[in-house]
């Protein structure tokens, strides 16, 4: 497996009047060519900022800190001049967003907005770009695309708009598609359609996907690999089967146990993670999950655990320092 995207010690901070907001504070993750990595975590864990950092779309007061590395296809994106970065952005790495309702420009037709992505990276005239836009709209399953290219975003449903976003994102056969909670704002049935479409396109086009979500159901549906984020850091990574079956980090375990399952009984109640996510202005010392962790001991509150390799997984928990930890995976929970 070759690493297409290798993020090392990514730290993205925001300098605000109330202090330094360390949204992403030492993230390591790897996306392999043609595979899907799902990044899961609660709101505020730094998932979206990680994605925007990879895209090079962090604006002031945000800043990717020196010492961070984002290696894509052998090149560190953080060392490239803006001009070269722009030729990668939208061509080799593309992104779709959470809110299809507001992510399209309301005053241009959807056909124009797809063609714009085509023209940004290809030497084609307007006619050629429009033809390509029609082709892309057909690819993402928009009916009668010749007619619908003239539609404005407000004339389309949320699901259709997300298909338009995907069409624009696929315009230059990207190597990596970043999807930031692409189905969160959609109805459940539409969610399933969009996920189905993404899986189908991934299998047909061989695009690697970095998918951000807080929905473990989406992870189960889409992921080859998983990275669990908590408080600006990745706390556990591994293949989806490994992480789901034997989570090594107590946070992952708690997260899996907090998903309601059909047929739950009083004997196995839904677990709640006590407490709140700490503030990025003031992360706790030691392990950031320690204040909410049922397994925490003294060392957890003093020293920040690095990512320990446990078989094919990696986990940032002191309990994993000497090898795998016994834990309840989904199979036990769902039984």
């Amino acid at each position: 497996m070759t690493a297409l995207l290798d993020v090392k010690n990514l730290r993205t901070h925001f300098h605000t009047t109330s202090g330094v907001y360390r949204a992403v504070d030492g993230v390591d993750l790897t996306v392999h060519a043609g595979r899907t990595l799902c990044v899961v975590g609660e709101s505020g864990s730094g998932k979206s900022v990680t994605a925007l950092s990879v895209m090079g779309l962090i604006d002031a007061p945000g800043q990717v800190q020196p010492g961070s590395e984002i290696v894509f296809d052998g090149r560190d994106l953080l060392r490239l001049p803006e001009r070269q970065l722009r030729s990668i952005r939208g061509r080799d790495i593309t992104m779709i967003f959470q809110e299809p309702m507001t992510s399209l420009d309301p005053v241009y037709t959807v056909g124009y907005q797809i063609a714009e992505a085509v023209r940004a990276h290809n030497d084609v005239d307007r006619k050629g770009a429009t033809e390509r836009a029609i082709e892309l709209m057909r690819l993402v399953g928009i009916p009668s695309p010749e007619r619908r290219i003239h539609d404005y975003p407000h004339q389309m449903s949320g699901g259709m708009r997300q298909r338009v976003m995907i069409a624009a994102a696929l315009s230059c056969d990207p190597k990596l598609l970043i999807a930031d909670e692409p189905t969160t704002a959609l109805d459940v049935t539409i969610q399933a359609q969009i996920l189905e479409l993404m899986k189908d396109l991934r299998d047909r086009l061989g695009t690697a996907i970095l998918m951000i979500t807080h929905d473990l159901g989406v992870v189960a549906e889409m992921a080859d690999d998983v990275a669990v984020m908590y408080a600006g850091k990745v706390v556990e990574t591994g293949s989806v089967t490994d992480v789901f079956n034997r989570p090594q980090h107590p946070y992952t375990e708690a997260l899996l146990q907090s998903v309601p399952v059909l047929g739950m009984s009083k004997e196995h109640p839904l677990r709640v993670i006590q407490g709140m996510v700490p503030s990025p202005l003031n992360w706790p010392t030691g392990c950031r999950f320690a204040p909410r962790c049922t397994e925490a001991f003294d060392r957890c509150r003093e020293e920040l655990p690095p990512l320990f390799t446990v078989d094919d997984q990696r986990s940032a928990c002191w309990l994993c320092e000497t090898g795998a930890r016994g834990s309840a995976g989904v199979e036990e929970i769902y039984r």
Partner: peptide, 9 residues
Amino acid sequence: FIRTVRAKG
């Protein structure tokens, strides 16, 4: 949508 346009390169 401005972010979208920028993401297109």
